[in-house]
Nucleic acid binder design. Structure first.
Lengths: 147, 147
DNA sequence: ATTTGTGCAAAGAGTTTGCAACCAT
DNA sequence: ATGGTTGCAAACTCTTTGCACAAAT
């Protein structure tokens, strides 16, 4: 069992949950996918493609459980779809391609600017923030140029 | 007819659409609502509460039309729900309350920082960006403190 | 008059839930 | 053994669509 999987098992146990075959499959998919962010549908597609023993409703239930355990993160994209990524505890934001829908990470975060501005100008108590840039990735810029 | 409604009629006409009674209702609701952002459901609730002649499917169809005309803006929130606001052409972002779900505007925008960072560090071509802060508004901070 | 728009009902996509059987510890 | 977990099917929410009729210019 990989180091990451060990970590997941431990964390699940602490929260009173078990590391089942089905949860392993989901974690494995998120860890190994070429895509940085995946929707529940994309995860299930991967399951079907490889004939893995995992029901769609179990995917949804376990994404919720893993989220509760802090093992994954959920990002709601502009088009309304929810995507998930394995939580590597490195705070980052995303550049999201409008063409291929894939995402890449950026380290830049406007948080400090935000926080200072809000404290100075509002009575709002910030808890979390969300920051995404939509556009075209290197690969898709080429494709679109050709068309 | 108000100045804003005149503007909408003109814009709709340019795009080959008509200013119908139903579209007026939707625009009026968005212009006059206490809420800064409204979901399709909240708009329809307002319609029903006032017994206005407007079907739910017409709400959806017209939000799409008004969006296409650039008369309203659409924001997909973190919880996956789509919200709409009248487009006043003042670029801004939102502070969104996790308790009452209402939003207030902030003028602060990290765009220039973003853009410079992306140009320097990536091959991504940015088109638009999204930036929201979730937390508790002044009113709800008080309510939560009391509980 | 013509073209766009509406109401209604039905279909679709994505997600959630109840329940009996199953499995990880 | 037993409490959490799964598969299945059905329900649910939000959104979209086809069609005949209605309305705006």
């Amino acid at each position: 069992m990989s180091h990451e999987m060990d970590h997941c098992q431990q964390r699940l146990k602490t929260m009173g949950y078990k590391l089942t075959k089905q949860r392993k499959i989901i974690i494995d998919i998120l860890l190994s996918s070429r895509k940085h962010l995946m929707t529940a549908g994309q995860i299930y597609e991967e399951v079907r493609k490889n004939n893995l023993p995992l029901n769609f409703s179990t995917v949804y239930r376990n994404l919720e459980t893993l989220l509760e355990c802090g093992l994954i993160k959920k990002v709601a994209l502009q088009d309304g779809t929810a995507s998930y990524e394995y939580n590597r505890h490195d705070h980052h934001h995303h550049l999201i391609c409008l063409h291929c829908k894939d995402a890449e990470m950026i380290d830049y975060c406007p948080y400090n600017e935000i926080n200072r501005h809000i404290e100075e100008h509002t009575n709002f108590f910030p808890v979390e923030h969300r920051f995404e840039i939509y556009g075209y990735c290197e690969k898709c810029r080429e494709i679109i140029k050709r068309d």
